[in-house]
Each structure stands twice: as structure tokens, then as C-alpha cells.
């Protein structure tokens, strides 16, 4: 369909490159996530649980 100029051969490699690139970077991140320290993990996981109180907007003025 398209003129078989320069492109046809090498475009077939894109899925391969995409897989290798994404896969390798992902593997690195995966490894780092697994190696995170227990203390660090616990601290991050508890971040949503800081206690807070409330105030009426009128009172705060």
C-alpha cells in the first residue's frame, strides 16, 4: 500500500524496542520498589493517617 522506501523494514522493530525499553526500565523500578526499607514503607503507608481537627471558616477569619 505504501511506497516501500526506507521505512518498511525498520518500523517492524518498533514493537521490539518498545518492549525492551519499557521492560528494562520497569524491571529497574520494580527492583527498587522491592528493595525499599521496611521503615520507609511503613512511614509512607501511614501518611494518610495524620490527625486533624476542624474549624468553621467564619471562626478562622
Amino acid at each position: 500500500m505504501f511506497r516501500r522506501l526506507l521505512f518498511e523494514d525498520w518500523v517492524g522493530l518498533f514493537p521490539l524496542i518498545a518492549l525492551i525499553t519499557a521492560g528494562s526500565v520497569y524491571a529497574t523500578i520494580f527492583y527498587r520498589a522491592l528493595r525499599m526499607k521496611r521503615g520507609q514503607i511503613d512511614r509512607f503507608a501511614r501518611l494518610p493517617f495524620e490527625s486533624e481537627s476542624t474549624v468553621s471558616p467564619d471562626e478562622s477569619k
Binding site: 519499557a22 526500565v25 520497569y26 523500578i29 520494580f30 520498589a33 522491592l34 525499599m36 514503607i41 511503613d42 509512607f44 503507608a45 501511614r46 494518610p48 493517617f49
Partner: peptide, 23 residues
């Protein structure tokens, strides 16, 4: 986690979840 009053099951898994989706 706020509604269940307990931390996320696995923070490590959440990190992997994030990077996997982004990539």
C-alpha cells in the same frame, strides 16, 4: 485506607502499580 482505618495492603505493590501503568 482512610475509610477502612488501616494502611494500604502493600505500599510496595502500589509503587509497582504506578510505574507499570505509567510505562
Amino acid at each position: 485506607p482512610k475509610a477502612a482505618e488501616r494502611p494500604v495492603y502493600s505500599y510496595r505493590l502500589s509503587v509497582i502499580h504506578f510505574w507499570s501503568l505509567v510505562f
